Computed example of a mutant assay.
Amino acid sequence: MEFDFQWLLLGLPIAFALGWMASRIDLRQWKRDQRESPRAYFKGLNLLLNEQQDKAIDAFIEAVQQDPDTSDLHFALGNLFRRRGEYERAVRVHQHLLNRADLPSTERDRAQHGLAQDYMKAGLFDRAEEAWKALEGTAFDTEARLALLTLHERSRDWRAAVEDAQKLERGSGTGSYAPRIAHYWCELAVEADARQQASDADEALRKAREAAPQAARPLVLAGERERAAGRHAQALECWRTLLAAHPDAFALVARDYASSANAAGESARALIELQELYGRMPSLDLLAAIGMLEPDAAAQRQRVAEHLVRHPSLSAARELLRLRIAARGNTADDEVAHIEAAITHAAKPLQRYRCAACGFEAHNYFWQCPGCLSWDSYPTQRLEDL
């Protein structure tokens, strides 16, 4: 049977026409999908700008369903879930992205970064730590190391925090972390002392002073430990280094310094040093220490009275009244005593330290703010001395 080429001539135009029609149908469908996807995306963006997050999430979900391969829509949706506090849904979005085999490495790192943020916000710190560690060596390396440092500070894992800070100092170019490293070693020294492991505390304090030789806290802590051990001469040596390097912080140890000076037989020298410092940085803490070195009651009343004239404050007025009542003994006027008690009550809020970063106030001095966890954010002067 011979093949009739006429059928071929007739079939070719028909096949071409059918193919053309099919391509036009697919092209129209593709164009329609492309139009609908941006429309849903821009609708979500508009709702987001109008702070209608619930409707924005619905619009983004619609856009993702129409174009499931677009990673940017997934990132937008994941960020929205995290901002809304729907951390579980945010985690699922970023994990879905990480499970895609076709995702480029830069987008994969971005998804890992989003996942780490989800865990961090959700308070799942163990998972957040693993997620941040997976970002080391990527474009998010510095941010990951800073996040790990924050995590280890919160968990009080000071040795891990030391390693984090050392890595940041070596590779990130974000500045010196030596003062913070010194704080970590001081924390370890305090913990070792609490466990009565004096040798570990000595080693930690040595590393703190090695990390930041002129930092205030290692000098304060070293003097306190020497004084507690009865080595008053060594304590004075530590605190004199503090006086030279950080005179503004010396008021924190002024009373202990006076006590150790009396015990070591160096009262005269210490009195001269404290008087000279008071002339530059007057405070009631220094006046109290001076009174311990020169305990004459009349002289101390005169000093406090002069301080009250030059630097009026409730605490100075209270101290002067207290000294006058003590001088009168049993003949003290009850009304004066009541006035002294009222001033004492009113002065208490002004005797606090206030964090310069967040405003958290405390009666005790903190090297790290309990409120915002900032280091060295407390001025060493009390509120009424500022």
Score class of each variant (00 low, 15 high):
Leu314Gly: 10
Ile290Asn: 03
Leu284Asn: 02
Gly359Phe: 01
Trp158Gln: 03
Gln302Ala: 15
Met120Gln: 01
Ser105Ala: 15
Arg328Pro: 07
Met281Cys: 01
Leu243Gly: 01
Leu252Lys: 03
Arg154Tyr: 06
Arg209Met: 13
Leu97Val: 07
Glu143Tyr: 03
Asp164Thr: 09
Arg180Val: 02
Ala229Leu: 07
Lys167Thr: 05
Gly291Trp: 02
Asp193Ser: 11
Ala198Ile: 10
Leu350Pro: 04
Ala289Tyr: 09
Arg32Pro: 00
Glu319Tyr: 10
Pro312Gly: 07
Asp202Met: 11
Arg310Cys: 08
Ile343Arg: 06
Asn330Cys: 01
His345Val: 10
Pro379Glu: 11
Asn46Cys: 10
Ala63Glu: 12
Lys121Gly: 09
Glu224Phe: 02
Arg310Ser: 12
Thr150Gln: 09
Leu135Cys: 01
Arg89Cys: 02
Arg206Gln: 15
Leu124Met: 09
Ile325Pro: 07
Arg209Gly: 15
Ala347Ser: 12
Leu149Thr: 11
Phe3Pro: 06
Thr331Ala: 10
Leu12Asn: 03
Ala222Arg: 15
Gly223Glu: 05
His246Tyr: 06
Phe360Asp: 04
Arg159Val: 10
Glu273Leu: 01
Val309Ile: 12
Glu335Pro: 02
Glu335Met: 10
His232Pro: 07
Asp141Ala: 06
Leu242Thr: 07
Ala56Trp: 08
Ala316Cys: 02
Glu224Gly: 00
Ala198Asp: 13
Met1Asn: 11
Arg24Ser: 08
Gln95Phe: 09
Val336His: 06
Pro349Glu: 08
Phe366Leu: 04
Gly175Pro: 09
Ala134Val: 01
Ala161Asp: 02
Ala244Ile: 05
Lys43Cys: 09
